[in-house]
Design a protein around this nucleic acid. Sequence first.
DNA 1: ATTATGTAGTTGTATGATGACTTTCGGAAG
DNA 2: CTTCCGAAAGTCATCATACAACTACATAAT
Lengths: 257, 257
Amino acid sequence: MSQTVADLRVERKPKLSETVVAAIRKQLLAGEIPPGQKLPTEGQLTEAFGVSRTVIREALAKLAADGLVEARQGAGVFVSEHISTTFGVLAADMGAKDSVALNVLEVRLAIEIESAGLAAIRRNAAQEAAIQEAFFEFERLLLASQPTGPADLAFHRAIASATNNPFYVEMLDVLGRRAIPCDVTSPWSTELVQSDEYQRGLQREHLVILNAISAGDAEAAREAMRTHLAHSQQRYRERLQARQAYYANSLKAASTE
Amino acid sequence: MSQTVADLRVERKPKLSETVVAAIRKQLLAGEIPPGQKLPTEGQLTEAFGVSRTVIREALAKLAADGLVEARQGAGVFVSEHISTTFGVLAADMGAKDSVALNVLEVRLAIEIESAGLAAIRRNAAQEAAIQEAFFEFERLLLASQPTGPADLAFHRAIASATNNPFYVEMLDVLGRRAIPCDVTSPWSTELVQSDEYQRGLQREHLVILNAISAGDAEAAREAMRTHLAHSQQRYRERLQARQAYYANSLKAASTE
DNA sequence: ATTATGTAGTTGTATGATGACTTTCGGAAG
DNA sequence: CTTCCGAAAGTCATCATACAACTACATAAT
């Protein structure tokens, strides 16, 4: 049997509750609702999201399982105390400075290396499918010459999700917002970032990670992720130097003019 | 009688779905349904447990969130393949808070492993001395039969500091506040934690880490830290179970009174 | 002022129905 | 006989509604 072809056919089914979970989680991590405060009632959320109360309840149950919120019968659903404060402080500290960005990237490296190893051990079929889907989405965008940044982020996020430890995802969300290797919105994102060769290299590294996770080899997955992020670090440094050189040149050009 | 103080006890309202979750989880742990196999349908479970489908669905959603099962629309609910490695099996009877603590501890594990590796490479003389100092301080306190918790924390903190990346220290502070393996202030910190043999084991593991960092061997440092924290995880689980047993006993004693 | 009580609001549970998807099985075509 | 196709049954996902249990707050009674 040729299962290779069948493996490529991975169509994911996003459950409604999952999208609601993602939306609410985003708001909670952004600190839009202070800890200890009461969330909107299930009825209000039902109207806001345009889904039935069943979906809302399932989403809230998932968030409660993750420890982000806790429901009290008759009173309401409340934001847990410890979570938001934990990550809110970190997020506040991370300014837009590049020196900070490099350090943050290094912390993110630690998180992702371990999450890759755990994902290799704990992933289930659906989670593995999600990782594959992100990989092929990257491939598709690359062939279509479209920005691949979101797919790259989705790839790493799917891996974190496959650890079945919600904190890895939250950490990645908080850290990733500051230091994304493929941030195409950055002002100094020149053709270097979007070059085909550059992104091909990314995909090669992604493939090694994907294979290791699929094979359930934690050690190999960690090592693959380590080299991948180490390379990302290197590329990031090069881009910083390139920008620095650019400024230096423009400065010199201005002085000679 | 002043029941207000006694309200702190674990007289929470057990939701029906939680009961069902515990029952199914126990069956899964017992291996009554082999991995990859299909669970009874929601309808069958409603009859078996005598509750509504709402409760069954919520219970299954919680189990799916823990990574124990996965539901495929139109097909059924199946036992996940990699059960033994997830935290779900540990969270059998413990509350949500303990489960969160274990997850946080796992994230801290990722941070510390990498920080050990970086410390081995980047440490300067003063930082290496600080690590050694913390190590010997632990030794001194141990011989003096005094609490070693602070020294243990200082040891890990010195390593994080030796990475020359301030975020590692900050990260450790934030996470450590939640789940400190050597929290002597905990009510369930019995003689198990303070036993000489227990702390001797800690020191042996510390020594391996210290040697690797001094030798500048990043790989060895990471591996040593990994085993150290993995053991800490194991000890933490045992203490949670011990506390659980303690509460069960006190409850039984209260009922016979 | 304090206590008791009621009332509205919220979450927890039950029930029924419908849509979407998967599997299975039988029949038709080759 | 084998292969392909489609109908049908089984199952989860979602929706809608209703009631029960509980909480918080306002109100009334002492």
